[in-house]
Amino acid sequence: MSEDIKKFMYVNRRAPHGTIYAWESLEVVLIGAAFDQDVSVAFFDDGVYQLLKNQDTSDIETKNFSPTYAALGDYDVTKLYVEQESLEERGLTIDDLMDLKWEDEDEDWAEKDSIRVVSRAELSSVLDQQDVIFSF
């Protein structure tokens, strides 16, 4: 079956909460995780806001889906690409983002970082290597 594995990329370019795009993307990523494909998720432009720490939607009375990003590792979604230039334009650094980890079963369940901060050029190259791109 290994020849059937495709590289799936989910592209997130929208801020959370103001529109439904971010949450919809997260739902599709989780559903897609059931199909055993090689999944990556990219966060750039306003999409980097999705990963900010300390999001609490209790006062706007919408579902707070931001804790769900921490569960992606358990679904073997372990490659979260975040674009450096998008962070910088918005006054953000990796320290402003949630500390997302996954456990590598091939290395005695060692904890590893899910977030990979990459340059715009590197991200373009990662996008170029994909078989399928889903845009949100």
Binding site: A15, P16, H17, Y49, L52, K53, N54, Q55, D56, T57, S58, D59, I60, T62, N64, S66, G91, D96
Partner: peptide, 14 residues
């Protein structure tokens, strides 16, 4: 608006 700052993780120090 405070509720929208809080929802988006924008704390006072930022």
């Amino acid at each position: 608006l405070g509720a929208d700052l809080k929802a988006r993780g924008i704390t006072d120090d930022k």
